[in-house]
């Protein structure tokens, strides 16, 4: 049943005309410079208040820690030594051996001529990095996955969450009653309710350290909308627009997945076998995600679940079993009744 698990077109499933391409992100972490422009552009556009305590976390350069009610883009920083890099390369190769992703034998396309015209034959310069670097610093911008089978959406009892015509999942703050069911329904821990400040009732309101900035839409569940309002005006999401190195790309999901696969192949050809995709597999536990990532290590390293599974996947099975149990019980009762009549 395509509506609850496996590959499907979620936009059509939600009752939108079937010909609309599904929009998404491709976040290529191999070119991320960890500048956090995405976090800032997101907060600016969506008027999200600062939500940290203004204290250094000690987690490398990450001081916003995770996605949350007011942080809809979050950049993770991971420092790794040679052993972990070697391990990542091994696990990446293993994925290839399993047939995913497909590595093409073609080397990356040669450099185009900078000044126009055909470049003459130039002896190619070896661009292979040294075998295994002693150290690396991974940076990755995380965001709502806009799942094909979105747990948050499917469990929402009020209709506050809806699937948009772009295939994305958006919360309507004017409908949400803050029940929090979606928070538990998200396998990635993305959705969060805006704190109403009662945890720290004595905190003064203000912007400085030790003060609580004004929080709009209190008590309401919040998460990335993939800039639904901007998409309606043919604008691209704020984070993708600002990203200095195009680590965050926005577009039709189908195209992005193709680009992502090419990029993995290119990196593998350069010996960076640690590259792999996350969210591009339509047969995973959420039917693939609208936000696809190129990672350079296991998802857990970035704080992502290795095998996300939407809670509604098993609904048909559960219904089937419950029905069988019900039928069985009815049958048993009937037999008992008939037997008792005798």
């Amino acid at each position: 049943m395509g509506q609850l698990s496996g590959p499907t077109d979620p936009t059509a499933d939600a009752g939108w005309p079937a010909d609309r391409p599904r929009k998404g992100f491709f976040t290529d972490t191999s070119i991320c410079i960890g500048c956090k422009a995405c976090e800032v552009a997101c907060k600016q556009w969506n008027d999200n208040p600062r939500d940290g305590d203004l204290e250094l976390t000690g987690m490398s350069y990450d001081n916003t820690v995770s996605l949350g009610a007011s942080t809809w883009r979050h950049v993770a920083f991971v420092e790794q030594g040679a052993e972990q890099i070697a391990q990542a390369r091994r696990s990446g190769r293993a994925l290839v051996d399993l047939g995913m992703p497909t590595v093409r034998s073609a080397a990356p396309s040669p450099a185009p001529a900078p000044a126009g015209g055909t470049p003459p034959d130039v002896a190619p310069v070896d661009t292979t990095p040294p075998d295994t670097p002693e150290f690396r610093w991974l940076m990755a911008s995380d965001v709502c996955k806009h799942c094909t089978h979105a747990g948050c959406l499917d469990v929402c009892p009020t209709g506050a969450l809806f699937r948009t015509e772009f295939g994305t999942v958006v919360i309507q703050p004017d409908v949400c009653n803050g029940c929090g069911t979606c928070v538990a329904g998200c396998p990635f821990g993305v959705v969060e309710r805006r704190s109403d400040g009662t945890a720290a009732p004595t905190t003064r309101e203000g912007q400085r350290k030790g003060e609580q900035p004004p929080v709009p839409k209190r008590g309401v569940a919040q998460k990335c909308t993939l800039c639904y309002d901007r998409l309606l005006d043919d604008e691209i999401p704020a984070c993708a627009k600002t990203c200095p190195t195009t680590s965050i790309k926005f577009g039709d999901r189908e195209d992005l997945v193709a680009v992502a696969r090419e990029r993995v192949a290119e990196l593998h050809a350069q010996g960076m076998t640690e590259a792999r995709l996350y969210g591009a597999n339509d047969r995973d536990g959420v039917g693939g995600t609208g936000s696809v990532f190129l990672l350079l290590d296991e998802p857990e390293v970035y704080g992502l679940p290795p095998d996300p599974r939407v809670c509604t996947t098993d609904l048909p099975e559960m219904f089937r079993r419950a029905t069988m149990a019900g039928v069985g019980m009815l049958a048993g009762a009937a037999i008992a009744f008939l037997a008792g009549c005798r």
Partner: peptide, 21 residues
Amino acid sequence: DVFGRGPAVTSPTTRHIAPRT
């Protein structure tokens, strides 16, 4: 949208949303 996950559940605010750009 029989399951109420798409256009059927959009609120008037949502239907009239426009970016400030």
